[in-house]
Design a protein around this nucleic acid. Structure first.
Length: 574
RNA sequence: CGGCGAUUAGCGCAGUUUGGUAGCGCACUUGGUUUGGGUCCAAGGGGUCGCAGGUUCAAAUCCUGCAUCGCCGACCA
């Protein structure tokens, strides 16, 4: 490609609405342009990168035995009514009507369509297992699209769906997909981790997310420092620091704390260790039928954070988790939120595992302006129900039993899970078994955020000059950068010759033949992040050399003109 | 959906307080200059100031409504 025939579309200035570095660089490098909130055009450079990601994903999916399909983005509502998700999905599902007022959706995912296909086309256990995938545009009407293509409304996803007659077959394909994902993200040159994830309301036994590690990641991941254990902080089990509480050493006393409305204030007033305090949070409760029913108190240690997901999974707690307001608390307890505690609390209570092993701790006394010091379970108040309620934090023991936890941020780029029979039951996806009986199929589902990977890769690979592509993703593997070509017939001749040679060798090459100053060209090419640059200039031509520059290391080496292309193809690892 | 903010040339912004001929930098066009890291000089093109009403002799500027975009939060998986 000659840059004079190409659309570089680079920008000097950073658009004001781009917050994170990948969004800024994708705009500046001319990879995407926003069309509306959460909707982007992929400009030529961006599309080349996107196609590289797709190519690697496709190759590895096929190598793992999956078969490519392509399903429509617009899907009829009746399929969604059949699966129940027409009701369940909420406003993220964009619904629309055709000219005959028939209802349709823009597909946020394709379980319904693939189920419809498989129930029609597959009728015997002999046709199983089957793993079908596509690389398709999805649409989710996100409440708040942000960070460019990282969280956009329209995005490209690889989604695969597998169908099985039994658990063993599902498990086997799941493991094959797990390995394929590791290969894909490794080939893409990403620093990533598989992470134990929520099986959630979907059910199923097992789920893993694949995260690219980056400061800007929207998820927090807990890692063991001594094993492979990694889990989303939302889900990581918090292990108490000891088996049981230490014996009490002091008698409980009530103290006046007129200004201590927060744990921090309480700690300062009495010079307490924050680990010797506990906070009491009041949320809405439910009865056995799941109907709203009164309030319930949750307690975590003063320096710990309540985990919303864990709390809302408790049978006594309303889901989604809803905090009581000041008036509700006052009506139920007779004191405000700053003075709550376990002693004399007229509400049902669940305490975190760590709270259950505390001794001599401080908490509110359920009277405005008073706290108790030196509370001890059993002696001063009965120990209520105990549950895992808090977020893990760095330094906690790892739930795998080995080492302690460290917390890093990650960007979710892949998610695999065993769906079980949720969709096949709803949509009657089944076959005849060996014994001639009808049986609904087990399903697995495997997603990769193709467009998000492009942004995630930039988050991990950039410097002050721009993007530094992993070679497998780079829009061009090599750029020929002639110095003042329009003044030197020699430079032009060599540049043209190398350009033809590169093309002949199958390299994706950009020939920057613009009549620009060298500084402008260097800056643009580094911004775009092309891994290898061949600098052709009068300076080295007398010796028959060019300069080969590496984007990542910045290293420059003189290479004989005759050897350059051979050297580049030898190290090419696309 | 709640809170806050923005909307003036392709991009980044000033001008709005105190109403009076539409500005700056970058980008773009032309000519010259320069030529191994975002040259310099000169000339030029480009804006119904988000939209609709209102106040006024006069509105980018004041008032009302709407739209779009963004940030924080909640929500969702």
């Amino acid at each position: 490609m000659r840059s004079s025939n190409y659309l570089l579309a680079t920008l000097k200035e950073t658009p004001s609405d781009a917050e994170i570095v990948s969004h800024q660089l994708m705009m500046r490098a001319g990879m995407v342009r926003k069309v509306a909130s959460g909707l982007y055009t992929w400009t030529p450079t961006g599309l080349r990168v996107l196609r590289n990601v797709e190519r690697i994903v496709r190759e590895e999916m096929e190598a793992a035995g999956a078969i490519e399909t392509l399903m429509p983005m617009v899907q009829p509502a009746d399929l969604w009514q059949e699966s129940g998700r027409w009701q369940d999905y909420g406003p993220e599902l964009l619904r629309l009507q055709d000219r005959n007022q028939r209802d349709f959706v823009l597909g946020p995912t394709h379980e319904e369509v693939i189920s419809e296909l498989v129930r029609k086309e597959v009728s015997s256990y002999k046709q199983l297992p089957l793993n079908l995938f596509q690389i398709q545009t999805k649409f989710r009407d996100e409440i708040r699209p942000r960070f460019g293509v990282m969280r956009s409304r329209e995005f490209i996803m690889k989604d695969a769906y597998s169908f099985h007659i039994d658990e063993a077959s599902l498990e086997q394909t799941y493991q094959v997909m797990f390995k394929a994902y590791q290969t894909i993200f490794s080939r893409l040159g990403l620093d990533f981790r598989p992470v134990i994830a929520d099986t959630g309301s979907i059910g199923g036994n097992l789920s893993h997310e694949f995260h690219v590690l980056a400061e800007s990641g929207e998820d927090a991941i807990a890692f063991s420092d001594s094993s492979d254990y990694a889990a989303n902080v939302e889900l990581a089990e918090a292990i108490p620091s000891k088996d049981k509480a230490d014996p009490a050493t002091a008698t409980m006393e009530e103290v006046e704390t007129p200004n201590a409305k927060t744990i921090q204030a309480l700690v300062e007033q009495f010079g307490l260790a924050i680990e010797k305090t506990a906070k009491t949070l009041i949320v809405h409760g439910v009865n056995e039928n799941g109907d709203a029913s009164g309030l319930i108190a949750l307690m975590v240690r003063g320096d710990h954070e309540l985990n919303d997901i864990k709390a809302s999974k408790l049978p006594q707690v309303a889901s989604p988790l809803t905090f009581a307001n000041d008036d509700e608390i006052r009506a139920a307890v007779g004191a405000g939120p700053g003075s709550l505690g376990p002693v004399g609390l007229p509400l049902p209570m669940v305490v975190d595992r760590e709270v259950a092993v505390m001794s001599d701790f401080a908490a509110g006394s359920n009277k405005d302006g008073y706290h108790y010091l030196n509370i001890n379970w059993g002696r001063d108040v009965e120990l209520p129900a105990v549950a895992d309620l808090r977020n893990v934090k760095a330094g906690d023991p790892s739930p795998c039993g080995k080492g302690t936890l460290d917390i890093k941020r990650g960007i979710e780029v892949g998610h695999i899970f065993q769906l079980g029979t949720k969709y096949s039951d709803m949509m009657k996806v089944g076959v005849l078994t060996e014994s001639g009986k009808h049986q609904n199929l087990l399903m697995g589902c495997y997603g990769i955020g193709v467009s998000r990977i492009v942004a995630a890769a930039i988050e991990q690979n950039n410097d002050a000059n721009g993007i530094i592509w992993p070679e497998a993703m780079a829009p061009f593997e090599v750029c020929i950068l002639p110095m003042n070509m329009h003044k030197s017939a020699r430079v032009q001749e060599v540049a043209e010759r190398l350009y033809e040679e590169c093309k002949g060798a199958g390299l994706n090459v950009l020939f920057d033949d613009r009549k620009e100053r060298p500084g402008v060209m260097f800056a643009d090419i580094e911004l775009i992040g092309i891994p290898h640059v061949i600098v052709v200039g009068e300076r080295n031509l007398d010796e028959g050399m060019i300069e080969l520059k590496n984007r990542r290391s910045g290293d420059k080496e003189k290479v004989a003109i005759a050897d350059v292309v051979q050297q580049l193809t030898a190290t090419n690892n696309r």
